[in-house]
Structures are given as C-alpha cells and as structure tokens.
Design a protein around this nucleic acid. Sequence first.
DNA 1: AATATAGTTTATAATAATTCTAAAGAAGAA
DNA 2: TTCTTCTTTAGAATTATTATAAACTATATT
Lengths: 137, 137
Amino acid sequence: MLKNNEFIDKLRSSGLRPTKQRLKLCKVLFNRSTTFHFTINDLKKQISEKLNEKISLATIYNTVHAFKKKGYLKEISINSDKSYFDTNTKIHHHFFDNSTKELIDINDNQVEKIKINTSLPGKKITSVEVLVKVENK
Amino acid sequence: MLKNNEFIDKLRSSGLRPTKQRLKLCKVLFNRSTTFHFTINDLKKQISEKLNEKISLATIYNTVHAFKKKGYLKEISINSDKSYFDTNTKIHHHFFDNSTKELIDINDNQVEKIKINTSLPGKKITSVEVLVKVENK
DNA sequence: AATATAGTTTATAATAATTCTAAAGAAGAA
DNA sequence: TTCTTCTTTAGAATTATTATAAACTATATT
Ligand SMILES: [Mn+2]
Ligand SMILES: [Mn+2]
Ligand SMILES: [Zn+2]
Ligand SMILES: [Zn+2]
C-alpha cells in the first residue's frame, strides 16, 4: 500500500502535476497488491463506486494516456470495440476467456521461452507476447 | 485463380446466395496467390480501385461478418480503433510493425512449439498465437 | 414463365468509444 | 500575490460499427 506522498513524488518525478484527480486514479490503479486489467469504463465505475467520487470522462482518458506514456500502464491487444489497459506493464502473456471476455495474466515461468527463427530486415523486436484463447469446456 | 463458378458453389454450399456483391468480394478477397490482412476500409478501397465498382458499406460489413462466421475470414486481435481481418484463417503468428502499422504473417515452421505449463479449470484452449511487435532499428 | 417467399442490399439513422475544443480552474514559479 | 503553464471539464465532433426498414433479387413453387 503506497502512501499519497509516494504517488505525489512519483507523479512529480515524471513531470506530471499531482492533481486531486491523478492521485485518486493512482489510488484506484496502484494501491493494491496485485495488478489488473481494465477498460476506461471499468475505471470510471470503480471511481464512483470505490471512492464515491466523480472524475470527468475526459480526464480519465487524459490520465490513462498520460500514465501509459510514462510507462505506468500498458495497453493490451485484444480485438474489441474498446481498449483494455493493464497495470502490469512488463512484457507478459495472457489467457483471454472468450466465454467471460476476461483477460488473465500468465506467469512468465509457465511459458517456455519462445523462439522466433525469422526476422524482418531493418526492424528490431520490441516484444513477443502470447495470447491463449480459452472457452468453457 | 478460382473461377466465378467455384465461388458460386462455395457460397451455395455454405448457405449463402451467390449475389453480385458477394462474388465481387470473393474475387477481391480470394482470387490471389497469397493471403493478406485488411480493414473494412481497405476492402472498400480495393473494390472501388481494382474492380471500379461500388458496394455499400453496410454490405461490406455484412459480407465480411458472414464470411467470418463461415470460416472464410479470421478477425485479428490488434489493438486499434478498427478491426483487422485475415484471409489466412489458420491459427498462426504475426509480426506487427509499429512503424508502419503493418501486420505480417509468421510462417509456422519458424516458431518453435509454444508450451504453456498452466491451465484454467473448466476451460479449454482454442488457440495459442504469438504477436511479435517490431519497429524500425 | 409468372408468382411467392425468404434472403440480400442499400441509404440512412443510431450507437458507442474515443478525441477535440475552448473556457474555467489549479499548481508551481517568480 | 501574480503570472504562467498545465489540467480539468462539459460538451461537441469524429469514427468505426451496428441497426432499421424499404427496395430489390435469387430461387423455389405454381
Ligand atoms: Mn488508444
Ligand atoms: Mn467486430
Ligand atoms: Zn496482463
Ligand atoms: Zn495473418
């Protein structure tokens, strides 16, 4: 559990003013023991339900994008009408449950190293991620 | 190069009436030696540029979804504002070039078998696909 | 061949996620 | 405190996609 002061420092150190709205979002996003996945709408709900407060939708979008840019959030490639974000910013693999539309992290040590024996001239690899789609048996 | 008659049979055999519009789309989508990736907008452009004809946007959406449902097209999970489709319907891996936003197939024999040493209770795996993100060196 | 039926196409409207705009407000520097 | 720059906000605009409902067409039936 991080303290408010730590969030303030973190924001300042990345050139973001520690506003009330950003600190609230930090609390909802980072003040927990495990990482999680969310959509903008999920986040909006959590703010109104958990904190019983309201942040304008535009600010939520702004802040999520700012945090992504600073590397505090990661956007996940799932084909959908909406964007998914992840507080786990490391390169990692996912299950995507087609029955529940839920995204679940796969622990790195449970996937054997992936070897790609081909490359594209003039290009460098920035990530290699696996998406395992599952559904109810 | 498939003949028009072959498309007619293919459509009929999957319960789709071989309309002028569907046959035109078959020509643009399947009358080539290699598979490819496209967005709805790409497809719309190709119809007007290659065939010099016009199919309503609604029909393009309808048809792409019908073809996907019949297994002639695959939708690809790339985070974006728009959907990507693939005429290669097999489970396969991709490069995604962040510099050009291009999606490129990876040949299956160039990726060593992926081993996932974990599972979700009550769920079965339907696909395991790798996304390799690249960018200019 | 004419008719009936169900499937298809189309223009257009509706929806939904996201981004833009521009004015008001707040933070930090001077 | 004052100034400047950054941030928030409501609401409008944009964009991809889906829904609607009327006109059209493929095909089965007479
Ligand atoms: Mn985005
Ligand atoms: Mn879709
Ligand atoms: Zn994750
Ligand atoms: Zn592909």
